[in-house]
Amino acid sequence: MTTDARTESDGDPRVVVVPGLSGDAADFSFLGPMLGRRRTVTTASFDDLPTTPTVAELTTRIGAAANATTTPPALIGYSVGAVAAAVFAAEHPERVSALVLIAGWLSPSPKLIALASLWQRLAHSDPDALAEVQRSALYSAEGWDSAALPRIDERSAALVRLAATPSRASAPVDLATLATRITAPTLVIGCAHDEIATARETRLLFAAIPDARYTEVESGHGVLRERPAEVLGLVDGFLAEPRRHPAGAILGRSRP
């Protein structure tokens, strides 16, 4: 994944990616290598998480990945990884050059909380059924041909549990307050048919970050499988010139 450190942009050639609910680097199996053609990409590792991780645990992992670079990297988080990336960027503004939050949220939606409790009930008794249910929630009807069964394991169980915990309850994280401290230019990518984060919660996250712009992709929550190339296009464009669109801008959908 590591290529020459040359960059065609003024932006930083180093990128740290933060996986979503699976905790698996495979979330970036398309985006990682393709961004890696012109940049150095490091994945924040969610291996060996404690059974009940906190957001602080995730931001520590992000910090470790970010430390591997000499200059502050661009940080790209997906799903619960977007929430963690936002917290990291708020707590360490000087360590992030640009921030991309994909299918993240300000607060967990009621549906996400319900899915998490279903996860608790079925993870051991009927993991196959659970995987089916999660797949249905993850992918949109239109993107169904890209749908894959999510992995049901201890790590994803822990991340789902964490994701569904309202931020206030897991002090010290109140994302709504924290988000105002993010200084990096930020791109928030929402998914029009996101049944997990919900596009509304993603837009609220955008609204809470001062220097953020927002755009939406026709996809379910599983956007990195449904529309990975479109996300790449958005990320590439943003990293090349993060402040091309002013803070607060809502960008139109792509019209190829």
Partner: peptide, 12 residues
């Protein structure tokens, strides 16, 4: 749009 972005994936 869907066709375009699907086709783009093949560049990988």
């Amino acid at each position: 749009s869907r066709l375009f972005w699907k086709a783009e994936e093949a560049f990988a």
